[in-house]
Nucleic acid binder design. Structure first.
Length: 344
DNA sequence: AAGACGGGGAG
DNA sequence: CTCCCAGTCTT
C-alpha cells in the first residue's frame, strides 16, 4: 500500500524535523543570541555563499557594525571593505540601504510581504527574516529545500534552472510549514538538514530524521535528485600587469559605473597599459566566476616614460604605497594573489 | 524568461 | 579539475 501523500503528513513531518534540529543544530554565531539585525546580516552574507566562508566575515562585521544604526553611520567604503572577498558586493550596498530604510520606517516591517519591499531582500530572505524573527509561517525555498523536497516526493522532473525548481516546490514547502510550532526553527531545520544529512552528494539517508516520509528513499535513488540542467561554462583569459615603482604598486580602480566590482581595486588589465609581448610572465592563476572560467596571466613590466603618460592620463590608474595596501579594497583573488606576486 | 553578479569550498 | 552554494536584480 502506498504511503499517504506528504502534505497529509505535514504535522508529523515538522515534528520529527524539529526534534532532530533541537538535538543536532550547529551552534552558528547568529543562532547564539538571535536578533533581527544578526538575522538580516547573516541571511545577506549567506546568499550564494557557504557557511564556512561567511563565519569570519560575520564575526568581524558584528564587532564593527553591531546594529542598524551603526551601519547607517558607517562609510560605504568601510562597508565594502568589510565585504572584501565575499563577492556579490551589491549585497553589502543593499544591506546599508536597508538599514537606512529600516531606521526611517514606522511602523517597522514584520511580515515577509513587508520585507520583500526592502533592497536585496527576495522571497527567500523575506521568508527567513519573517519566520526567524517574527515566527511567521513563511517557508524558505532555496537550493537545500528544493533538494530535500525533490527527494521526499521522488520528483523526477528535470528543471532547466534553479529558479524553475524553486517555483515548483514553493507550494509544498508552504504546506509543510503550516503546522510548524516554531516556523523559524522549521526553516532553519530544513536548511540544516540539507547542509548535513540530505547533502547533494552522499546523502546520509540511514540517519535521516525524516526518512519515513521520503518517497525517494523508499523507491530508489534520492542522491540523483533533483534533476537540474547544468549550465555551459565560458572560457576567458586576461593579462594583467604587476608594476612596482618607487615603493608603490600600480592599481586600477574599477569605475563605479561598472557592472561588476564597481569601486573595487584590482591589478591593472594589460590592455589598459597597452602592454605587448615580450613581457615577463611571472604568474598564471585560474578562477571561476558564476558560469565563467577565467585564466589570469600576470606580467612584470618596467616603468618607462610612455607608461607614465598613460597612467597620468587615465584617472582609474593610480599608485598605492606598498605599506598602505590594506587601505584599498581589492577583489578577493587579487588580494590573495598579491602575496604570491610580492614574494616573486 | 534569461543573464549578470564573485568567490571559495568540496569531491 | 568541475560543480555549485542560506538568491536577487536587471534587462
Amino acid at each position: 500500500m502506498d504511503p499517504s501523500p506528504l502534505p497529509n503528513q505535514a504535522p508529523a513531518f515538522t515534528k520529527a524535523l524539529l526534534a532532530w534540529y533541537q538535538e543536532n543544530y550547529r551552534p552558528l554565531p547568529w543562532r547564539e543570541t538571535p536578533s533581527l539585525y544578526s538575522t538580516v546580516v547573516s541571511e545577506f552574507m549567506c546568499q550564494q555563499t557557504q557557511i564556512a566562508t561567511v563565519l569570519p566575515y560575520f564575526d568581524r562585521w558584528m564587532k564593527i557594525l553591531p546594529s542598524f544604526e551603526m551601519l547607517t553611520i558607517a562609510s560605504e567604503s568601510l562597508v565594502i571593505k568589510l565585504w572584501e572577498g565575499l563577492g556579490y558586493y551589491s549585497r553589502a550596498r543593499n544591506l546599508q540601504k536597508l538599514a537606512h530604510q529600516w531606521m526611517a520606517a514606522e511602523p517597522k516591517p514584520e511580515t515577509a510581504a513587508d520585507w520583500l519591499a526592502y533592497p536585496g531582500v527576495g522571497p527567500y530572505t523575506a521568508a527567513a527574516i519573517a519566520s526567524i524573527t517574527y515566527e511567521e509561517h513563511a517557508a524558505v525555498v532555496d537550493g537545500n529545500v528544493v533538494r530535500i523536497l525533490a527527494r521526499l516526493t521522488n520528483d523526477q522532473r528535470e528543471f532547466s534552472d534553479n529558479g524553475k525548481a524553486v517555483k515548483a516546490f514553493t507550494t509544498l514547502a508552504g504546506l509543510l510549514i503550516t503546522h510548524a510550532e516554531r516556523p523559524g526553527d522549521h526553516n532553519q531545520a530544513m536548511m540544516e538538514l540539507g547542509a548535513t544529512i540530505c547533502s547533494k552528494a552522499n546523502p546520509q539517508c540511514l540517519i535521516c530524521p525524516v526518512k519515513d516520509f521520503c518517497e525517494g528513499q523508499r523507491v530508489g535513488n534520492p542522491a540523483q535528485l533533483p534533476r537540474l540542467a547544468k549550465r555551459q561554462i565560458i572560457q576567458k583569459r586576461i593579462d594583467r600587469v604587476f608594476l612596482i615603482h618607487g615603493g608603490r604598486l600600480l592599481i586600477h580602480r574599477i569605475p563605479t559605473t561598472a557592472k561588476r566590482l564597481a569601486g573595487l581595486c584590482e591589478l591593472p588589465p594589460g590592455d589598459l597599459l597597452e602592454v605587448s609581448f615580450p613581457a615577463e610572465l611571472i604568474l598564471t592563476r585560474r578562477r571561476g566566476i558564476a558560469n565563467e572560467r577565467i585564466e589570469e596571466r600576470f606580467l612584470r613590466i618596467d616603468w618607462n616614460s610612455k607608461l607614465h603618460s598613460l597612467i597620468t592620463k587615465d584617472e582609474t590608474l593610480f599608485w598605492q604605497p606598498l605599506n598602505q595596501l590594506n587601505d584599498i579594497t581589492l577583489t578577493g583573488p587579487h588580494r590573495k594573489w598579491l602575496a604570491e606576486l610580492m614574494a616573486l
